[in-house]
Design a protein around this nucleic acid. Structure first.
Lengths: 172, 172
DNA sequence: CGAGCATAGTTGCTCTTGAAACTATATGTC
DNA sequence: GACATATAGTTTCAAGAGCAACTATGCTCG
């Protein structure tokens, strides 16, 4: 069942190295980290998104805004952009939708009228009180097959990759 | 430098835990695997996409088709869908674009007229001969900070997650 | 053989997204 | 205080993505 996407024609791959010097280079996407990572992340993201969407009519952007609000209980659109790496237009729309639904409030900051302080409304808090445990339970199930060590190592390696990514991005 | 997205305002967050028993649950997205994974994969994907796009005017879908063609030198749209998990419309358009550019050829299969066999043209092979090493070099740089063990473990853990994901998905 | 169903691939339509233009507020300089 | 510049956020616009309807071919079973 789950072999379908990894099996492909890897079986025949051993023919690669004997093609002489000007051989066409091959790329096995299943061995190519960017592809594999993206594919995995995509599936996870989509599966979770279904949970947000079906049960709470939230898209990913909206969910992220709420999640951030759940632990920085004051926030601005700008900060959300910085934290989540999402486009400001996307954030703006997510905020608007959440406000329209009465899940968050949005008030101009007294200090600087350009900024808008975001807060969870009681309705928003109630929704999160349901959604966050559900999301955490889902995640727990996802990582259930990993040992504690594997999990820790995974996060570690991810952090390394993030750091390296920035280094590469900076110069290239 | 790279601390920007993990730092956030976690500093002030310690005020959360004193909210009593019915306290709002928190979710730190930076500790939430689906988010972290997606965020990382997104950045990697975008960085690489830039390479395809700027230097070769290929989008991700097109690149994936080419990459698969690089080592299954006969292929159909259907297979590409299966291997890459992309929508068939997306694949269809990618194939069309590649054909228009003369990078691949597309001929109805003699066995079954519904299927179209895809092949790299010489131009396509030439492009890949440049692009694949570039992509691999980029990947090598990305994973340069990982030990061989870490790299292997990462792929292993990813495979576990993929499998678990399907198990979860199956039951709904 | 022919009717109904399945499959490969394409096209139309809508929604989302991101870039860029725009608005409104703030800051800095003279 | 007035003008130039920066910043937060919104809106506009065009491109991309996915769903669903469609076309064309093949398969199955009476």
């Amino acid at each position: 069942m789950n072999m379908e996407d990894t099996q492909a024609d890897n079986a025949g791959d051993s023919t690669v190295s004997d093609n002489g010097p000007s051989t066409k280079p091959e790329l096995d996407l299943n061995q190519f980290l960017p592809y594999r990572l993206n594919s995995l992340a995509d599936r996870i993201s989509q599966a979770l998104a279904q949970l947000y969407e079906e049960r709470y009519q939230l898209n990913i952007a909206q969910w992220r805004v709420l999640a951030w609000l759940s632990h920085c209980d004051e926030l601005t659109a700008k900060k959300v952009c910085a934290y989540t790496n999402m486009d400001k237009a996307r954030v703006s729309r997510a905020i608007q939708a959440l406000e329209d639904r009465g899940l968050i409030s949005r008030t101009p900051s007294p200090r600087d009228q350009r900024l808008h302080d975001l807060h969870l409304t009681p309705a928003g808090q109630a929704l999160l009180a349901e959604l966050i445990p559900a999301a955490q339970a889902w995640e727990a199930e996802l990582v259930a097959t990993l040992t504690a060590g594997e999990y820790r190592d995974l996060l570690n390696v991810m952090r390394k990759l993030e750091r390296q990514l920035e280094r590469i991005g900076d110069k290239g």
